[in-house]
Amino acid sequence: VLKALERTRQLDIPDEKTMPVLMKLLEEAGGNWSYIKLDNYTALVDAIYSVED
């Protein structure tokens, strides 16, 4: 979780936006981090930006 938060902080995305999206992605992935961690957490960042749209 810390590495995911560090990555999104680099992009000026607050933890308050990151955590709900991260928890949803983890739930959808059955707790499997490998998809979320791919390409420096690209799936997480993309999911956060899609929620903002």
Rank of each mutant, 00 (worst) to 15 (best):
Val1Glu: 06
Leu2Ile: 13
Leu2His: 13
Ala4Cys: 09
Ala4Ser: 03
Leu5Lys: 01
Leu5His: 03
Glu6Lys: 06
Glu6Ile: 10
Glu6His: 08
Glu6Pro: 00
Arg7Glu: 06
Arg7Met: 07
Arg7Gln: 07
Thr8Glu: 02
Thr8Gln: 01
Gln10Val: 08
Gln10Pro: 02
Gln10Ala: 14
Leu11Phe: 08
Leu11Thr: 01
Leu11Cys: 09
Leu11Arg: 02
Asp12Ser: 14
Asp12Gln: 14
Ile13Lys: 00
Pro14Lys: 07
Pro14Asp: 07
Asp15Ser: 04
Asp15Trp: 07
Asp15Gly: 04
Glu16Tyr: 14
Glu16Phe: 11
Lys17Tyr: 08
Lys17Glu: 07
Thr18Gly: 00
Thr18Glu: 01
Thr18Leu: 04
Thr18Lys: 02
Met19Phe: 10
Met19Ala: 02
Met19Leu: 15
Pro20Leu: 11
Pro20Ser: 10
Pro20Phe: 10
Pro20Lys: 12
Pro20Arg: 11
Pro20Ile: 11
Pro20Thr: 10
Val21Asp: 02
Val21Tyr: 04
Val21Ala: 07
Leu22Cys: 01
Leu22His: 00
Met23Ile: 10
Met23Ala: 08
Leu25Ile: 07
Leu25Val: 04
Leu25Lys: 02
Leu25Met: 14
Leu25Tyr: 04
Leu25Trp: 04
Leu26Ser: 00
Leu26Ala: 02
Leu26Gln: 01
Leu26Gly: 01
Glu27Pro: 00
Glu27Gly: 09
Glu28Asp: 11
Glu28Ile: 12
Glu28Thr: 09
Glu28Val: 09
Gly30Tyr: 08
Gly30Pro: 02
Gly30Ala: 09
Gly30Lys: 12
Gly30Asn: 13
Gly30Ile: 06
Gly30Val: 05
Gly31Asp: 08
Gly31Leu: 06
Gly31Phe: 12
Asn32Ala: 08
Asn32Pro: 00
Asn32Thr: 05
Trp33Ala: 03
Trp33Phe: 06
Trp33Arg: 02
Trp33Gln: 02
Ser34Asp: 15
Ser34Leu: 11
Ser34Trp: 15
Ser34Ile: 09
Ser34Asn: 14
Tyr35Arg: 10
Tyr35Leu: 12
Ile36Pro: 00
Ile36Ala: 04
Ile36Gly: 00
Lys37Glu: 15
Lys37Pro: 07
Lys37Ser: 15
Lys37Gly: 13
Lys37Ile: 15
Leu38Met: 14
Leu38Ala: 15
Leu38Gln: 15
Asp39Arg: 07
Asp39Thr: 04
Asp39Tyr: 08
Asp39Pro: 03
Asn40Gln: 07
Asn40Trp: 07
Asn40Pro: 01
Tyr41Ile: 05
Tyr41Met: 03
Thr42Trp: 11
Ala43Trp: 08
Ala43Val: 11
Ala43Tyr: 10
Ala43Pro: 12
Leu44Gln: 01
Leu44His: 00
Leu44Trp: 03
Asp46Pro: 00
Asp46Asn: 15
Ala47Glu: 06
Ala47Gly: 06
Ala47Arg: 09
Ala47Phe: 06
Ile48Gly: 02
Tyr49Leu: 14
Ser50Lys: 14
Val51Leu: 14
Val51Ser: 15
Val51Phe: 13
Val51Ile: 13
Glu52Phe: 12
Glu52Ala: 12
Glu52Leu: 13
Asp53Ile: 14
Asp53Gly: 13
Asp53His: 14
Asp53Ser: 14
